[in-house]
Design a protein around this nucleic acid. Structure first.
Length: 263
DNA sequence: CGACAAGCCTGGTAGC
DNA sequence: TGCTACCAGGCTTGTC
């Protein structure tokens, strides 16, 4: 579930809790979560490091150890962060013990996230072939038009393709399409320039609003589709029935009345 | 108990 | 024929 807005929330949470704290030791509860690094190497790299900066790119969160490497975190579908004093949260996979006595846990109920170390965030992004962050930096409507051109698959798969755009997952792809009024089965070649520009503006607005709420679904505006996923509630716009279908092997929620193919 | 959810990777294939 | 983009399936495990 953690998509760009959720990871933006994790970043804020880390900034508010663990920033400028020094790591005395660390523990790995399940080494399957580690990506390209051994438990021992991770522990050596983290020891005596002080967290002094964070960066987010798409669904990845990076935390810098002063004058050293970056801790890399990806949250899969059930990952998160918990800052605690005494009792470790359930499913804590990696725990940082700060010298002041507090702790930060990377939690993950399933094994679909990962934790690692990188010397260079930009090189990491390039190596993992991540596209531009959906919310930040050098990304505009023209770029989206270029990304869509010549593609024959559905727009939703394109929005979720991390090598094209980093940060959007199944849930926010549905929300963006809902607010753009596009059927999730719409193919890229069905959209004209004007519609792609609208899609771009909607994408930015949805992600910005949700990121400002730290990905907290309960704080999203009333007219959002997300809180109505799998709850049998009507479309917030027309009151009609929300349909659930499979697209590219993924569950898509949409309103057949408000969302049309080709707009 | 089986189906399902999600992100992401892989393997097979549709389409140019 | 060969390449690439695309889709379906698998991994994982708690929940229904």
């Amino acid at each position: 579930m953690p998509e760009l807005p959720d990871v933006a929330g994790f970043k804020q949470y880390l900034d508010d809790t663990a920033m400028h704290k020094t790591i005395g030791s660390s523990h790995v509860a399940d080494k399957r979560i580690l990506n390209g690094i051994s438990t021992q190497k991770l522990a050596r790299t983290l020891k005596d490091g002080t967290l002094d900066a964070t960066r987010r790119h798409g669904k990845h969160l990076f935390a810098r150890l002063r004058d050293r490497d970056w801790l890399v975190m990806h949250f899969g579908m059930t990952g998160g962060l918990t800052y605690f004093q005494n009792d470790a949260p359930a499913h804590a996979k990696v725990v940082l013990d700060f010298t002041g006595g507090d702790h930060l846990a990377y939690t993950c109920r399933r094994m679909l996230g990962h934790v690692g170390i990188t010397e260079d965030v930009d090189a990491y992004i390039e190596r993992h072939e991540l596209g531009p962050d959906a919310l930040e930096g050098d990304f505009d409507a023209q770029r989206l038009i270029e990304l869509l051109s010549g593609r024959r698959g559905i727009v939703k798969s394109m929005l979720m393709n991390q090598s094209l755009i980093a940060g959007i997952g199944n849930v926010y792809a549905d929300e963006i399409l809902f607010q753009t009024g596009l059927d999730p089965r719409t193919c890229c070649d069905q959209l004209d320039t004007k519609q792609i520009k609208t899609l771009f503006r909607t994408m930015r607005r949805v992600l910005r609003v949700a990121a400002n709420k730290g990905g907290n679904v309960d704080r999203l505006p009333k007219n959002y589709l997300i809180p109505r996923r799998s709850t049998d509630q009507p479309c917030p716009t027309c009151g009609g029935e929300i349909k659930k279908i499979k697209t590219s092997g993924r569950t898509s929620y949409f309103c057949p009345k408000c969302q049309k193919q080709g707009g």
